Each structure stands twice: as structure tokens, then as C-alpha cells.
Amino acid sequence: MYQEDTYDSYRMVDLESRVAAASPYDLVLVLFDGLLDELERMRGHIEAKRYLEKGRSVEKCVNILNGLSSALDFDSGGDVVTGLARLYDYMIYRLTDVSVTLSLEGVDEVVGLLRELREGWEGVRDARR
């Protein structure tokens, strides 16, 4: 347990330093990266049959997705924002299903969607520079 606590402390310091130096576009990428990391941990928990930890990972992922969704600007974002909201909702739905079915394919699907979304967001950030 000590190693996990040390790792979590390191991750928190790393996250705090990344957030402090981030632009709004980079903050979204930080959240995407954190979500991808947690999805990988979830996969490992499912494979190792650590169901309590899997549940915690699902909860963290859903919380990040809800945070991303709640930050969307529906007033000025148009169809893009509506599409993002639907995508976040779908990912939450899939992770809720994964929590019950323990489907690694479901985890992989969410990872694939998120990687594609992250790549697009990097393009938006780079175009704004």
C-alpha cells in the first residue's frame, strides 16, 4: 500500500504543476491525459480482479467526464458542443456498463474515443497558438 500512496502523491504534485502552467486548452488535455491514465489503471484492476479498485477507477473516470461536460459552453458552442456532450454521456454509459460486465472491450472503446478526441483537441490548441 505504501508504494501506491507514494505514487498518488507524486501524481498529485505533477498534476498541480501542470495545471498551474496550463492554458485553457492545455487544461482540457491534462484532463484527457488523467482520464487515459485512469482508464489504463481500470483495465489493470479488471485483469487482476481487484474489483474495489476498479470501482474507484470507474468513479474517477465518470467524475472527470462529468467535469468536462459541465464545462461545455452550450450558449456559444453550437453543434460541436452538443456533440461533445453526447460523446461524454456515451463514454459514461459505456464505463457504467464496464463496471458491471467487466468488459475490456468497453474500456478499449472509451480509450479509442478519447484518444481521437484528444488528438482533435491538440489540433485546436495548436491552431490557436
Results as ranks from 00 to 15, higher is better:
residue 20 A to L: 13
residue 79 D to G: 11
residue 101 T to V: 09
residue 38 E to R: 14
residue 84 L to E: 05
residue 39 L to V: 08
residue 98 V to G: 02
residue 107 V to T: 04
residue 125 R to A: 08
residue 118 R to T: 09
residue 98 V to C: 04
residue 44 G to F: 06
residue 29 L to W: 03
residue 66 N to M: 09
residue 103 S to Q: 11
residue 73 D to S: 12
residue 38 E to T: 15
residue 59 E to I: 05
residue 110 V to L: 05
residue 128 R to H: 14
residue 129 R to G: 15
residue 33 D to H: 11
residue 123 G to L: 06
residue 112 G to L: 07
residue 37 D to G: 05
residue 41 R to Q: 12
residue 110 V to A: 04
residue 107 V to S: 01
residue 79 D to P: 02
residue 11 R to P: 00
residue 123 G to H: 11
residue 21 A to I: 07
residue 31 L to C: 08
residue 13 V to T: 06
residue 41 R to A: 11
residue 53 E to L: 14
residue 128 R to L: 13
residue 15 L to Q: 12
residue 16 E to S: 06
residue 9 S to G: 05
residue 16 E to M: 11
residue 34 G to K: 06
residue 102 L to P: 00
residue 122 E to F: 04
residue 8 D to S: 13
residue 78 G to C: 02
residue 88 Y to I: 03
residue 126 D to V: 07
residue 93 Y to V: 10
residue 75 D to S: 15
residue 92 I to D: 05
residue 10 Y to I: 14
residue 55 G to Q: 07
residue 3 Q to P: 00
residue 90 Y to D: 07
residue 5 D to E: 15
residue 121 W to C: 01
residue 101 T to K: 15
residue 24 P to K: 05
residue 33 D to S: 14
residue 83 G to D: 13
residue 66 N to H: 12
residue 14 D to C: 03
residue 45 H to R: 13
residue 61 C to D: 06
residue 87 L to H: 04
residue 53 E to H: 06
residue 73 D to A: 08
residue 16 E to A: 10
residue 109 E to C: 04
residue 102 L to Q: 14
residue 30 V to M: 01
residue 2 Y to W: 05
residue 10 Y to P: 02
residue 76 S to E: 11
residue 117 L to R: 10
